Simulated scan of single mutants.
Amino acid sequence: MFTGIIETLGLVKKVEKDQENLHLTIESSFTNELKIDQSVSHNGVCLTVVAIDEAEYTVTAIKETLEKTNLDLIQVGQYVNLERGMKLGDRLDGHIVQGHVDQIGTCIDIKDANGSTYFTFSYDSSLNNITIEKGSITVNGVSLTIVNSTKNSFSVAIIPYTLEHTTFNSLKKGAVVNLEFDVIGKYVSRIQGLKN
């Protein structure tokens, strides 16, 4: 379980294909605090630590994960948003995030708003994921509030701190991102679908 509040950026040091799996080796400021079998969110994707070597650790993404996320696009030298699992009893500063990406989306617009930056994303609405105005969404692991919701797109407003301390600072139009829709909204939507 995560909150969508990014702890730090991780530098991708190695990307290795192994049959249908992908091993990512990451350098991070908290590697020395990790242990084998621990869950870490990478751009919103919950992955298990399988190896640790000094300041670097390795995680493995399987085919199912690669098909639903943008992890297969990651290259050596890129940064990823990192968050360790939340501790029981900590404040929930973002929202409830599972680290289970629902689908990918595409950045279709970026606008400076004199103090904040608006990012607009499109997504395939045929997969039955929904957004609502002022609802929560996770984009590449970052917990955000939706400011404009349509059938197949939404916008978020990023404050300067978030822009500076996440991979949003390098996001360009056309970029593919990981989307995790609000878990409570997903359950409500599912229940409503069963009633109809």
Rank of each mutant, 00 (worst) to 15 (best):
G99T: 09
D18S: 14
K134N: 03
L144E: 02
V177C: 10
R91F: 10
C107D: 01
A175I: 06
V50T: 15
S29A: 13
V59E: 11
F119E: 00
I158Q: 00
Q19I: 04
N140P: 03
Y161E: 01
T25L: 08
I104M: 14
G105R: 13
V49Q: 06
S136D: 01
T3I: 08
T120Y: 00
G99P: 12
L24M: 08
G85I: 15
T145Y: 09
L127V: 11
I36R: 10
G185E: 04
V50D: 05
A61V: 02
K186S: 10
V76I: 13
S125R: 05
K87E: 15
L194Y: 01
V139D: 09
K35W: 05
T58P: 05
L92S: 12
E56I: 10
G115E: 08
N21P: 01
L127Y: 11
T131Q: 03
Y187E: 08
Q75C: 09
T150M: 11
D124Q: 03
K68V: 11
V139E: 11
K63E: 03
H23F: 13
K151W: 01
T167C: 14
S143E: 03
E27I: 06
S153G: 02
T106D: 07
C107R: 10
P160V: 06
Y57A: 04
L73F: 04
S116A: 08
V50Y: 00
T3N: 07
Y187T: 05
K63D: 06
I108F: 09
K134L: 07
S136H: 11
D18Q: 14
F154L: 09
T65K: 14
D182Y: 14
T58I: 01
S149T: 12
S136T: 08
V76E: 14
F119A: 00
K195R: 06
T31G: 00
S29N: 13
N129I: 15
Q98R: 13
Q75L: 15
K195V: 09
G193A: 14
Q103F: 06
S116M: 12
L47I: 11
T117S: 01
S125F: 04
I158C: 03
